[in-house]
């Protein structure tokens, strides 16, 4: 069988990186992702399988090692594993109480960190991202310029920003634009 070079994953902003005195932005390494939809029971069951409870409160996330579960909607979670392959993550069989869809390649992530991270994001995101309104561990789907994104606050001054693959050059350019004003 002919083989293509599929050992590595490639996306439009792979390897992008920028840093100034206030903020650093970099394209995150490829990750495994599941869009997980479920009834409350389904969510509980899958949490056991993952050994990570899925968050039940709006806007929250849970994480353990390289695995994170983000509350997106009342029956929707985004599961991200920055290390393990998708096969290890996906539930083995279908279940009437949930639906897991592999979206590993649908999304591209950026890591935005530094004292100016919040300002960088606020150039294009209308949400209140102050620590009091969006504390560490907060997760939300929102809008970034004209692109839909998922935002996860991983630390006081660090965020993970996920967007759809084809929007990543646009989101990158917006982040670079925001980084310019990050010190303000």
């Amino acid at each position: 069988m002919a083989k293509a070079n599929v050992a590595t994953r490639d996306n439009p902003t792979s390897g992008n990186r920028l840093a100034n005195a206030s903020v650093s932005i970099e394209s995150a390494p490829p990750a495994s992702r599941i869009s997980f939809r479920a009834t409350p029971k389904g969510a509980k069951d899958f949490g056991k399988t993952l050994d990570l409870d899925l968050p039940v409160k709006p806007g929250q996330s849970t994480s353990k090692s390289t695995l994170s579960a983000l509350w997106i909607g009342p029956d929707e979670w985004l599961i991200i594993d920055t290390k393990n392959p998708i096969d290890k993550l996906m539930p083995r069989r279908e279940n009437a109480n949930f639906c897991a869809t592999d979206i590993s390649h649908r999304n591209v992530a950026f890591i935005v960190s530094g004292n100016g991270a919040e300002n960088t994001l606020c150039a294009s995101c209308p949400r209140d991202l102050s620590l009091s309104a969006f504390p560490v561990g907060s997760a939300s789907r929102t809008i970034f310029g004209k692109a839909e994104v998922v935002l996860l606050r991983t630390g006081k001054t660090s965020f993970r920003l996920e967007c759809w693959r084809s929007f990543s050059p646009y989101v990158w350019d917006l982040l670079v634009d925001g980084a310019h004003d990050a010190h303000i």
Binding site: P58, P126, R127, T142
Partner: peptide, 18 residues
């Protein structure tokens, strides 16, 4: 731009999300 309270997120969110 309006602020809209989402009854599922139980929070105020900017109109641009709606």
């Amino acid at each position: 731009m309006l602020v809209i309270h989402c009854p599922y997120c139980q929070a105020d969110r900017p109109e641009l999300e709606f």
